[in-house]
Design a protein around this nucleic acid. Structure first.
Lengths: 130, 130
DNA sequence: TTTGATGCAAAGTATTTGCAATCGG
DNA sequence: CCGATTGCAAATACTTTGCATCAAA
């Protein structure tokens, strides 16, 4: 268990609330917009600072996609689906045998995280070609 | 088969040569440095332009990691291992059943690409904790 | 009260783009 | 030749940081 000295400011509280409520994996800008509905004076800098701190504390997960960085209230490790049309990020159930992947690695490699990202077209956008 | 009108300029040729030779998944800056050993006047803009065009033509693969974008001469789809200490990107053999993952998706989702990225510590960096 | 956190603006990175000159086919 | 491509520099993101002020505990 890791203890981190962190004041529960209203900004931080609200950022966590936004991530817990929105399950759409918002970008930093989107988090800012949501937080500002409650705390209109919040700055983008504070959002970035807090997202970083919360990530380092393990309370938030950062997902790097071709569309930029997205944030997720951490629940359990799970893969994502990124829609190439609307850029939405969906959570998927965990179909990957993490242990099997570890087995597949060469000697001397240790896995700490697995990022599985599927890309394609989501059901909202229709699965037909453009 | 997709045909793309693309002149084989010396810059483009050299970028492809660099990616084919270096199997270390260089960043755009690293590609620039390598290309300049042969063509000293190449600009960073041209490297970015070409990497994008070559990616769109399917000749180059772009890998987005927390450490930034890396480029790979496309061979076959394969997962990567990113070392969290030295940032090296390794190719892994394909242990993932792509079809199985497609099966696991909800109705209406179509997969076009799979990005599997393992993160951890590589054998060069030793697998002990820091 | 103490010190971490904030808002703001400026500074960094990373990537893209406008344009006249150049070069490949 | 003609138009795609280049080098260069300026323009855009996107993210981090310095600093005086503010507020959580």
């Amino acid at each position: 268990m890791v203890l981190i000295a962190m004041r529960m400011t209203r900004q931080r509280q609200q950022i966590l609330a936004v991530l817990a409520a929105k399950r759409t994996h918002p970008s930093a800008e989107e988090v800012l917009a949501e937080v500002r509905r409650v705390l209109p004076r919040v700055s983008l800098g504070s959002v970035y600072r807090n997202l970083r701190l919360l990530r380092e504390a393990g309370l938030v997960r950062e997902i790097v996609t071709s569309e930029g960085r997205r944030y997720d209230a951490v629940t359990s490790p799970h893969p994502h689906f990124v829609c190439e049309r609307c850029s939405r990020v969906y959570d998927l159930a965990e179909p990957v045998a993490a242990e099997a992947l570890q087995q597949a690695l060469p000697e001397g490699f240790a896995v700490s995280q697995i990022h599985l990202e599927l890309r394609g077209t989501c059901s909202e956008c229709g699965s037909q070609a453009s």
